[in-house]
Amino acid sequence: MSSFNRRHFLSLAAAGPLLAACGFEPVYGTRGHASGLLNQVVLDAPTDSNTYILVRELEDRLGRVPRGRYGMTVSVAVTERSAGRTITGVTSRYDVIGDATYALRDLATGEVVTSGKVQNYTGYSATGTTVATLAAQTDSHERLMVMLTDQIMVALWAWSAKAAS
């Protein structure tokens, strides 16, 4: 077992120079394109629980600052729909669909430098007790906000790489 772990470690160590040779560079590295976004984005205050989670996740990734170079507005729309029913017609599963629209603006000029819309979905089961169903619903909304945040971050990284070149 330990022999296998050493081989696995050695193969990962050997891959390091190959990644460096292909131009791989961490997005937040010293020369990474997204490092200019760190601690430079002031997010607008959240308006509801979903937006609160999304803003919290964005601040975890970008930094929470009172002043910066950019301002960001995010709006979230969430809908739930029945995804499964029992023979008696009781909904047993829900899909939670979320859209997040964002705009990153330069605070000095007020100009929107990039904007977009991302969409994703998740679901939860409604077959347990009332408390279990409410916990599943809350968890589903939080997971959805994390997924939307990930998509927004990918779009911001792509924009920052494009803007830097």
Rank of each mutant, 00 (worst) to 15 (best):
R56C: 06
T73S: 15
L148N: 11
A34G: 02
R81K: 09
V146R: 14
A155W: 01
A15H: 06
R81F: 12
V27S: 14
S11W: 07
M153R: 11
L156V: 00
Y52E: 13
R67G: 07
V131C: 02
T91D: 15
A15S: 09
E80Y: 13
A83V: 00
E80V: 01
A77Q: 15
G23W: 01
I53Y: 13
S11Y: 11
A15E: 04
T79Q: 14
R7N: 07
N120F: 10
M153P: 05
F24D: 06
D99L: 10
D60V: 07
F24H: 14
A13W: 15
N50H: 13
S3H: 14
L19T: 00
L19D: 00
A164W: 05
G84E: 07
L144P: 09
V74Y: 06
S75G: 08
E25R: 10
G23H: 05
D95T: 12
R69T: 02
S140E: 01
Q119G: 15
M147C: 08
D150I: 01
A163C: 01
G63F: 02
A45M: 07
K162Q: 14
V65S: 08
K162F: 05
E57F: 11
T51S: 07
G89I: 01
Q151W: 01
A77L: 15
G128Y: 11
M147E: 07
D44S: 09
V41E: 00
A132K: 07
A158H: 01
M1N: 11
